[in-house]
């Protein structure tokens, strides 16, 4: 063993921490425009959407599919969906938007993905906390918060988003066609993710297909975290976890193979 080795390791860890921090600051500068209005928008967008869904559906139904509060029902669906979706969308474009910075030898493609993952992960958590706290304070409902499924839903959503983002950020860099195809695949995702309905309310043959959509499971876990009477027996942690790990491993492998050309193309 080289006696200098431990020093080199800590030096390189420090260097990656510096790079990650620099990228985080850089992302915040462009993401929120360095102003409070930018941060506020991250909160207003989901609130407006949940309000809109609640308003629309309360006109045609007497009560939401579960519980009594429309806003809470749509929040459980929308927050789980958007926590995944925002992370996937942002990390998926991390190489594209940061490409010039990759020509600094100390900045690697994975750093840009992790910086965006951290920023959106934390932003999304803050948004989720504020939205749920606000809704529960204003609209009474018979909820019993169970932290375990709630946290499982958010954790799996974050990792699934990271996996999809990792795969996409390399593929997008090499194939414009894939970017178009992915856009077509991802567009109807919101409509088939049980955000504004429940999985159980669908006919059996629809459920069989929908079950493979991992976001269904995330939304199921989220609702299990709020509604004691909700039946989340269709949720499979194993399926979501296996899919997530598969995507992360595939994404890292593609990035490794393509890394030489990522900075150049």
């Amino acid at each position: 063993m080289n006696p200098n080795e431990p020093i080199q390791v800590s030096e390189s860890t420090l260097a990656s921490a510096r790079v990650l921090f620099a990228l985080l600051v850089r992302e915040m500068a462009t993401r929120f425009g360095g102003s409070w209005a930018g941060y506020l928008w991250a909160l207003i967008e989901p609130l407006a959407f949940i309000a809109l869904l609640s308003l629309a559906f309360s006109q045609i139904a007497h009560s939401p599919p579960i519980g009594r509060s429309f806003p809470l029902f749509y929040a459980t669906g929308y927050i789980a969906f958007s926590y995944y979706n925002d992370i996937a969308a942002l990390t998926g474009r991390s190489i594209h938007v940061n490409r010039p910075l990759l020509s600094y030898p100390v900045v690697g493609p994975l750093d840009t993905v992790l910086a965006r993952f951290l920023l959106q992960g934390l932003t999304g958590l803050a948004v989720a906390a504020i939205v749920f706290a606000g809704i529960l304070a204003v609209f009474a409902d018979q909820v019993q918060i169970r932290p375990l499924p709630l946290m499982a839903s958010l954790a799996l959503a974050a990792l699934l988003g990271l996996g999809v983002g990792l795969v996409n950020c390399t593929l997008f860099a090499f194939s414009k066609t894939w970017e178009l195809i992915y856009g077509v695949i991802a567009r109807p995702l919101f409509q088939v993710s049980a955000v504004f309905f429940t999985f159980a309310s669908m006919p059996a043959y629809v459920r069989e297909v929908l079950w493979w959509n991992p976001i269904i499971h995330l939304v199921g876990l989220m609702r299990a975290g709020f509604y004691p009477a909700y039946d989340a027996s269709h949720v499979s942690h194993v399926y979501v976890l296996a899919l997530t790990l598969g995507l992360i491993v595939a994404g890292l492998a593609m990035m490794r193979v393509g890394s030489g050309r990522l900075a150049e193309s």
């Binding site: 420090l14 510096r18 790079v19 500068a29 910075l101 020509s103």
Partner: peptide, 24 residues
């Protein structure tokens, strides 16, 4: 003289701070 590593949407000052951060 290679200027290809600047991020176009960041200012000169922001790009400078970015470089300062990554090189400590």
């Amino acid at each position: 003289g290679f200027a290809g590593s600047f991020h176009p949407s960041l200012t000169g000052a922001q790009n400078t701070r970015f470089v300062a951060r990554i090189y400590g």
